[in-house]
Design a protein around this nucleic acid. Structure first.
Lengths: 150, 150
DNA sequence: GTAGGTGCAAAAACTTTGCATTTAC
DNA sequence: GTAAATGCAAAGTTTTTGCACCTAC
């Protein structure tokens, strides 16, 4: 993680009364250098390669703090909570066969229309949305095709 | 639950090698007569009013079987899995303050456009989507307004 | 009659928490 | 220096499972 990123992370955490510890920095680095959208346990196992004594409790606590500070994002595709080092607005698609998650970028105008429609339907004040897709990734599609022609 | 519904449930379950037990029928009735989008434990407590000896394990197993048979739907807004007796295509909005879930109906054309956009972005074969919103329900909006003017 | 389902209780899976000690600022 | 954070372990919450007995078909 470069100097600028460290400073920015420190700033964002400090604004909420938190600190950038080496554990949190390691978690950030692990998440930002991967695109697997992992769960807490995966992060824990990766961080332990760098900080062997980190605890699972710290990973859970740090993921929450980092997410509240807007430094990472969380998603709930599937049964357990997963995390994403990429906080820019984007959507996900989950492979129903292998569990892999890929990124998708929908046009902001379409998302805006979505929220407007929802707002006019419900009496709610909308603060956010979640748009996810399910399907078969190219590899699993191949596999299922191969199996059906056996 | 009327005769027709029972027959339909029986048919759907039978097609997958399952049976319509009195426990499953009670679970279906509880879900269909409510719009709270409850979790397994709520269903358990409701069903126990009718069948006092039902077990939580049976509720979990039945909810899965009923969902796989298409007789109910599940949603993952929030930390635990919730269920919906209404299986017709619709979306949900979750109140971030009180946890209440309300139904929304987006135009099919908009959802279609969404899937088409996603399909053209990812290499996946899309089989489904999940569109959810977050916000404040009218009651909680009132409350937060009242608090901020205190 | 029999495959599928149930109740019960134990276990698994995931996440949170209390506390003495350490550390970032 | 001190408030925040950590490691460790224990506990909490939600969900799944093994098994002997039951029941829908």
């Amino acid at each position: 993680m470069d100097k600028r990123s460290v400073a920015e992370a420190k700033r964002r955490l400090a604004s909420r009364g938190h600190r950038l510890t080496k554990q949190r920095q390691a978690i950030l680095e692990v998440l930002r250098s991967s695109d697997v959208h992992p769960d807490a346990d995966w992060v824990y196992r990766e961080v332990r390669k760098v900080l062997p004594h980190v605890s699972l409790g710290t990973v859970y606590r740090s993921l929450e703090v980092l997410r509240d500070a807007g430094l990472i994002a969380s998603l709930e595709v599937g049964p357990r909570r997963r995390y994403d080092g990429n906080t820019s607005e984007h959507q996900h698609i989950l492979c129903i066969s292998c569990g892999r998650v890929a990124d998708i970028h929908l046009p902001p105008s379409l998302l805006e229309e979505l929220e407007q429609r929802a707002a006019s339907e419900a009496d709610f004040t909308i603060t956010g949305h979640r748009v996810e897709f399910y399907g078969l990734c190219p590899q699993c599609l191949q596999k299922s095709k191969a199996e059906s022609t056996e």
